[in-house]
């Protein structure tokens, strides 16, 4: 994908896409009760944010956006590694992946 092809789209369209991605992810986090789906939605939110970085880097002709993308990517990988370990443990413990059943944090 060349710069010209990218620039053929208005910046606002890219930002709207990023925001939409973020919002779909957020809605997923808030609505889904299954912890696997919540984690997937979280990935969507991260990707929305990462897309906004890449777009900004391209607009400004600066590589920092792509650096941030790689950072977010590793962060997401690390996060999902820990989270999936927790999910496995949780399933062993409760035989359920329902987040709402897990309200002991209250006390």
């Amino acid at each position: 994908m060349t710069d010209q092809a990218l620039m053929a789209l208005p910046v606002s369209h890219g930002l709207i896409f990023a925001a939409a991605l973020f919002c779909v992810g957020l809605a997923g986090v808030l609505i889904r009760r299954n912890v696997i789906f919540m984690l997937m939605s979280l990935e969507l939110m991260l990707n929305g944010a990462a897309f906004a970085f890449v777009l900004a880097g391209a607009v400004h002709g600066n590589a920092d956006g792509q650096v941030m993308f790689v950072l977010i990517l590793t962060l997401a990988a690390a996060e999902i590694a820990v989270a999936l370990a927790l999910v496995v443990h949780l399933f062993h413990w409760r035989r359920s992946l329902d987040m709402d059943a897990l309200d002991e944090v209250r006390d």
Binding site: L26, V29, L30, I31, R33, M38, M99, D100, L102, D103, E104, V105, R106, D107
Partner: peptide, 12 residues
């Protein structure tokens, strides 16, 4: 209330 999704909603 201990519901993680509520917390998330409030953060949002």
């Amino acid at each position: 209330n201990g519901r993680i999704r509520w917390y998330a909603a409030f953060i949002a």
